[in-house]
């Protein structure tokens, strides 16, 4: 089972590539309610439609993003691995996960409390801006990859 809240963590620049060069004050603030979580194979990290309240930094393992598909079982449409981040639905109204995330092997991730992030970014919009600038290339890359997938390049 998910070990929710089992391991509080103090974030540093070295914790995950996404956090490199962030202000230590922000990292200290983001450490509040941050947790290291472990997921067993086939365990869901989150499910479609649930409220998006965490931002995940993957440390080890592999997570598959799943969607519902017409007339067939659920489809895994993307996998995310160590060094990557997962989940930006907490930045987009209505703040619900549009996909489900399932661990495809034993996975370790850091979950940041997005309520803490929202609150910090309201007080320090410059940090919020840098955070979004850091996240945008990830989103753009996933969009690009999806376009390439649609081009049927593995025919």
């Amino acid at each position: 089972m998910t070990s929710l809240g089992d391991a509080p963590i103090v974030l540093t620049e070295g914790t995950h590539p996404f956090l490199e060069r962030f202000d230590p004050k922000f990292l200290a603030a983001a450490s509040a309610n941050a947790r290291e979580m472990r997921f067993e194979t086939d365990e869901y990290v989150f499910r479609e439609g649930e409220r998006a309240q965490r931002f995940f930094l993957i440390l080890e393992g592999k997570v598959g993003l799943e969607i519902e598909a017409a007339d067939r079982p659920r489809l895994t449409v993307q996998t995310i691995g160590p060094g990557e981040v997962m989940g930006w639905a907490w930045l987009v109204h209505p703040y619900h996960w549009p996909v489900a995330a399932r661990a495809l092997k034993p996975t370790r991730a850091i979950a940041l409390d997005t309520f803490v992030l929202h609150r910090y970014f309201k007080l320090h919009p410059d940090v919020g801006y840098r955070f979004v600038l850091r996240l945008m290339p990830v989103i753009a890359k996933r969009l690009d990859d999806t376009r390439v997938q649609l081009a049927d390049i593995h025919a």
């Binding site: 592999k62 598959g64 067939r72 079982p73 895994t76 993307q78 495809l104």
Partner: peptide
């Protein structure tokens, strides 16, 4: 589908 535990992507 759910039986694949490998990578998904291009």
């Amino acid at each position: 589908d759910r039986n694949w535990y490998g990578d998904v992507g291009v």
